[in-house]
């Protein structure tokens, strides 16, 4: 069993069958995570490099755990610098890794397209763990997996992604993945944080959260990055919370419970009020566990691909 591509660079253009394969395979790996001994020999003898040019504790830990559970050998390479500063270039780093006979590379980078560039210069399977504001495919897959667990079927669901869509790799990957699975997708955020012509991706755009809440089954609430306020894209955190914050009050006005996802880490009482984050309709902690299972599935399936 393998996927159409030998890399996971993004969810753009990934066929539904591949997504289903990953989700189904993640179900089996999640069972492994429930066993007393949470380890399988699937990737024994394989070497994986986690190449993180941007710090992201959560994503790195999740990948690392997935790799350990699959018995792979791991090398972590963290660099806060890029080719902008002096020192080794991205290309040289990649070439060095290649020389060490690595099977897979998980890469996180500030520049959109960095994993694509990497896939052209090294032979290993490449997994995009977030490239700039472009894609973060494993995050979207774990979001979709979590939704499928909750709702059983994805077809016909309506999900709204809330927050800074412009700077979000999570939003784009979610849009591509969810649309492929037949989900209705909307986005909601301040007009300054909605990228141009996004409606051409087949999503509805909202600027008032109260307009969209009654229509959806789940909200995927994005983290507001505090530096965006400094960039002047919205006037204050206070105003953001008052107009876009997902609060108990707002959810109570809907006629059915609404599932809450968040890729973490949460700014409590900014994009999400504390009582909502901790409520029974929040699946935020399930997302964390599912992240490991989904990443195990991706690593396994890519390891099966032909070079």
């Amino acid at each position: 069993m393998s996927l159409t591509s030998r890399h996971l660079l993004g969810l753009h253009g990934v066929p539904k069958e591949d997504i289903v394969k990953i989700l189904d395979s993640a179900v089996s790996f999640k069972e492994v995570l429930d066993r007393p001994i949470k380890k399988v020999p699937t990737l024994q003898g394989k070497t994986i490099v986690n190449l993180f040019f941007e710090s992201s504790t959560r994503t790195r830990i999740s990948f690392e755990l997935a790799q350990r559970r699959l018995s792979a050998d791991i090398v972590n390479f963290a660099a806060s610098t890029s080719s902008l500063s002096k020192g080794e270039t991205f290309k040289d780093t990649a070439r060095n890794i290649e020389a060490m006979k690595i099977d897979m590379v998980v890469v996180r980078h500030q520049s959109a397209g960095a994993p694509h560039f990497l896939s052209r210069i090294v032979d290993a399977n490449i997994i995009n763990a977030g490239d700039g504001r472009h894609e973060h495919p494993t995050q979207a897959l774990l979001d979709i997996f979590t939704l499928r667990e909750k709702f059983e079927t994805l077809e016909g669901l309506h999900i709204c992604i809330v927050g800074d869509i412009l700077h979000s790799r999570v939003a784009l990957s979610n849009i591509y993945g969810l649309k492929a699975m037949g989900v209705n997708v909307s986005v909601c955020g301040p007009a300054t944080m909605i990228p141009r012509e996004i409606e051409k991706l087949g999503v509805d755009v909202y600027h008032h959260i109260d307009d969209v809440i009654p229509k959806v089954d789940a909200l995927n609430v994005l983290r507001i990055q505090l530096e965006r306020q400094e960039g002047g894209l919205f006037p204050s955190l206070r105003e953001y919370h008052n107009y876009f914050g997902v609060t108990r009050d707002r959810l109570d006005r809907a006629d059915k419970p609404i599932t809450i996802l968040h890729p973490g880490p949460i700014n409590r009482d900014v994009e999400l009020s504390a009582d909502v984050a901790d409520s029974e309709h929040s699946v935020i902690l399930q997302q964390v566990l599912n992240g490991v299972a989904v990443r195990m599935a991706v690593l396994y399936l890519l390891s099966q691909s032909k070079p």
Binding site: H12, H134, L172, P195, R196, K200, L201
Partner: peptide
């Protein structure tokens, strides 16, 4: 260029 393609590529426009 800023527009649909920059939106889908996540590149600043």
């Amino acid at each position: 260029n800023e527009g649909f393609v920059s939106t889908t590529l996540g590149l600043p426009g």
